[in-house]
Every structure is written in structure tokens, then in C-alpha cells.
């Protein structure tokens, strides 16, 4: 098995799990959101990696470079869209956290639950 050759995929999996852990285990809402961003960023890495060909270059047709190997540009375009989606999600999430802080005076999940129970 070529473990090091799959280096990027290992980083993908580790980042994904770190993000997921933060979402599940942290009670601070901002930390949860950071975890979520990390979780999404890991997927960006997965897409970019799969489009890369070793020795491949940017897919631009140039004179005198007829036999160049190109990396697949499509995953990068897809991930550009996914990054926009990720940014919007983070922005909306932060907006909700600001509102939660206004209403509850805390951004800790336990405090929020506690003050609704009363």
C-alpha cells in the first residue's frame, strides 16, 4: 500500500474528523461553527486532490506546449461554488450567534438551554 502517496486523502479524513469533533463536542457556538467550517474545508481538499494529475499544469492552451498534461479544472470550479456556499453558511451562522447573544446574553449552548428551561 502506498500510504504516503495518498497523503492528501489522509489530511482530508483527519481534517474532516477534527471539524466533526468540534461540532459534536464543543458547547461554545462559535467553536462549533469553526468546526463546521473545517469540516467543509476538508471536502474542498478532497475535490482539489482528485482533479490533480502529477506533473499536470493549468489547462491553458499555449503555443509550443502541445503535449502538456493538464489537471482537471472542473473540480476546482465546483469547489469555487462550494466555497461560496461555505462562506454564506458561516456568515449566516455567525449572524444567528450574534442574535443568540443579544437574546440570551451568552454563546454557550448550556447557558442557552438553561435559560429557556427557566
Amino acid at each position: 500500500m502506498n500510504f504516503l502517496g495518498l497523503y492528501n486523502y489522509w489530511v482530508f479524513a483527519v481534517l474532516l474528523m477534527i471539524g466533526f469533533y468540534a461540532v459534536v463536542a464543543k458547547t461554545n457556538l462559535v467553536k462549533k461553527l469553526m468546526g463546521l467550517s473545517l469540516f467543509q474545508a476538508a471536502v474542498f481538499l478532497l475535490y482539489i486532490t482528485m482533479g490533480k494529475i502529477s506533473g499536470g499544469t493549468a489547462p491553458i492552451i499555449q503555443k509550443g506546449l502541445e503535449d502538456a498534461v493538464f489537471s482537471n479544472p472542473l473540480p476546482q470550479v465546483l469547489i469555487l461554488t462550494a466555497i461560496v456556499v461555505g462562506i454564506s453558511t458561516t456568515a449566516l451562522g455567525l449572524g444567528i450567534i450574534v442574535r443568540i447573544n443579544e437574546e440570551y446574553g451568552s454563546i454557550d449552548e448550556r447557558d442557552v438551554q438553561e435559560s429557556d428551561r427557566r
Partner: peptide, 22 residues
């Protein structure tokens, strides 16, 4: 105001769901 924590939870789970799909 209880809509806010509810929606935050929805946002977390919804985004994880969509990212899994991705």
C-alpha cells in the same frame, strides 16, 4: 427567541447533511 437555538441546530445538522452529500 427559542427559534434561534433551534435554527442554529438546524444549520449545523443541515450543513453536515449537505456536506456528506457533497
Amino acid at each position: 427567541r427559542r427559534a434561534l437555538p433551534a435554527v442554529f441546530k438546524y444549520l449545523m445538522m443541515g450543513t453536515i447533511g449537505a456536506t456528506f452529500y457533497l
